[in-house]
Amino acid sequence: MLYAQILINGLVLGGLYACIAVGFSLVWGVLNVINILHGTFVVLGSYIAYFCYVHLGIHPFLSIIVSGGILFVLGFLVQAGLINRVMGAPVLTTLVLTFGLELLLNNGILLAFSADYRTVQLANPLGSTIIGGLVFPLERVVATALALGLTVLLYVMLAKSRIGRAIVAVRMDAEAAALMGVNVKRIYAVTFGVGALMAGAAGSLLAIVFPISPLNSTEFLGIAFVVCVLGGLGSVAGAMVGGLALGVIESFGALFIGPEHGLTIAFTLLILLLIFRPTGIMGRRGYE
C-alpha cells in the first residue's frame, strides 16, 4: 500500500517533470542548443501565474495561457535576435551565451521579486480525495493531467500542423528543409518560442505545487537535463517517459535514502546513464 502511494506521488510529480523537460528537449533536438535559460523560463512562468492569481484572480490552471503566451514571445525574440546569430558555432559558444543570458534574466527576476519564496494560496482548494486507501492530492493530479495534456498537444502539433512538420523537417535535415523553401531561422525562433512556452506553462502549473523563487531555476534546469538523458534526446515520448521515470525514482529515493537527496539521486543517475548508455533508456529517436 505504501509503495502504491509512493508510485502515485512519483507519477504525479513525473508528469510535471515531463512538461518541464519537453520544451528543453525540443530545443536541444531541433537547434542543437542547450538552453541554460530554461530553468529561469520555468520560474518566470511561475511568477506570471502568481501575479495573475494575486492581482487578477486568474487560477493557475488558466494562467498557463498567459504565461505560455508571454514566454513564447520572449523565447522567439531571444532566438531571433541573439542565438540565431551563432547557430552552427561550436557547442561552447551557444552554451556560454545562454549561460550569460540566464545570469541576466535570473538576476533581473531576483531584483524585481527578491529571493523570498512565495506561494499561491488558493482561495478554494480542491483538497484531496481518498480512493481505495490511496490519497490523491487533487490540485497536483489536475496539474499533472494538464501537464501531460499539454505534452500530448505538442506531440500532435508537431505531427499534424504545417509549422510542426516544418520543425520536424528542420530537425531531420536543416539544409534539405531550406532547399524545400522552409525559412530555417524562423523555424528556429518558433521552436525556441515553443520550448519557452512549454517552460512557462510548466511554471504556471508548478506554482500550485512548489514555493516560487528565482533560486529554483538551477533545479528545474537539472531536471530537464536528467529527463532528456533518461528518455533519450529529441522525442516528445522520450521526455514523457523520462519525466515519469524520474518522478517515480525520486519518490522511491526519498523513501529509501531521504527526501533531501532527490536531486543528487537524479544527477548520479544522469552521470551513470551518460557513461553507460548515452542514448537513453528508449534509445535514440527522432520527432516522429
Binding site: 551565451l97 545570469l103 541576466l104 538576476n107 531584483l111
Partner: peptide, 20 residues
Amino acid sequence: LEIHAAALGILIVILIFFLP
C-alpha cells in the same frame, strides 16, 4: 553588488558577439 550576475551576463553577450 546586486547586479553582479547580470553584469557578468552582459559581458558574456558582448564577448560572444563582438569579440569572438
